[in-house]
């Protein structure tokens, strides 16, 4: 397709001037205004908007997946009965890789996208603050909706407000547990024990203590029922002999 050449005749030029003046005066009289007066009006947001991240502590298995996938390095796991993620909103880029990574659906996105914090310190949201949406003081009284049809686009203002939604889509995953595939290759380094947040790996027969007291020889590990399948030991094992398996 070739772009048409623009004609240079004075008549065309005059026509274009008239077009400009017409359009400007039309807009001055009946404007197609699209501005939303933000703090006083709130837009209706689609449900899948990626906003503030809400944590359900009862579901969290402290698997650290969210912290490890975060491209901006914004998630810090802090100890609070167990390890739970806290998001540093100074760094967060709202890619929601963490929400997609959560194997149990503990993290959920909400449509809250505008947050104001009093200080930089406050932006490092703690796990217990992530349990529910932050309390907000809002000035908005009406909501605005984009009405798009084939004929055009206009804003519809309504004197009602919608609550911010928390959208939790549970992943279709069965519960998993760690298993040792090749016990014969175990180094006996007990890294898996150290890293396990649930103390699910126990030493059945340990005869070496860390204090340097020689008691005996070797150690045997056992993965108990406490295992929730976070997979931390799988990633920690230097010989890669552990793996996650689905259990009934």
């Amino acid at each position: 397709m070739k772009v048409e050449k623009i004609s240079r005749s004075p008549l065309e030029e005059l026509k274009r001037h008239v077009g400009v003046i017409q359009e400007a005066f039309k807009q001055a009289v009946i404007p197609d205004r699209v501005t939303i007066e933000y703090p006083r009006e709130r837009r209706k947001y689609p449900e899948n908007l990626r906003g503030f991240i809400v944590l359900d502590k009862s579901r969290c298995i402290s698997c650290f997946r969210c912290a490890q996938i975060c491209p901006a390095n914004a998630i810090q796991m802090s100890y609070f009965e167990n390890f739970y993620p806290g998001i540093d909103y100074t760094k967060c880029i709202f890619c929601h890789f963490c929400v997609e990574s959560c194997p149990t659906g503990a993290l959920a996105s909400s449509t809250l996208h505008d947050m104001a914090f009093k200080s930089l310190e406050d932006m490092k949201v703690k796990p217990n603050q992530m349990m529910r949406l932050p309390a907000a003081i809002r000035e908005d009284v009406q909501s605005v909706e984009y009405d798009v049809t084939k004929k055009g686009w206009r804003l519809i203002r309504k004197m009602e407000l919608e609550d911010i939604k928390v959208v939790r889509i549970l992943p279709k995953l069965k519960p998993r547990r760690a298993f040792c595939l090749e016990p014969e290759s175990c180094l006996g380094c007990r890294q898996c024990m150290e890293v396990c947040p649930h103390e699910a790996i126990v030493m059945e027969r340990c005869e070496i203590t860390l204090e340097g007291q020689i008691v005996g020889k070797g150690c045997v590990l056992k993965i108990t029922e406490k295992c929730v399948g976070c997979g931390l030991c799988v990633r920690q094992c230097p010989m890669k002999i552990l793996s996650l398996k689905e259990v009934e």
Binding site: V148, T149, K150
Partner: peptide, 16 residues
């Protein structure tokens, strides 16, 4: 629908 709405608005833009 939005593609048509965009087209319609682009006409204003074209004139001005």
């Amino acid at each position: 629908d939005a593609t048509f709405a965009i087209e319609k608005r682009l006409k204003s833009f074209e004139r001005i």
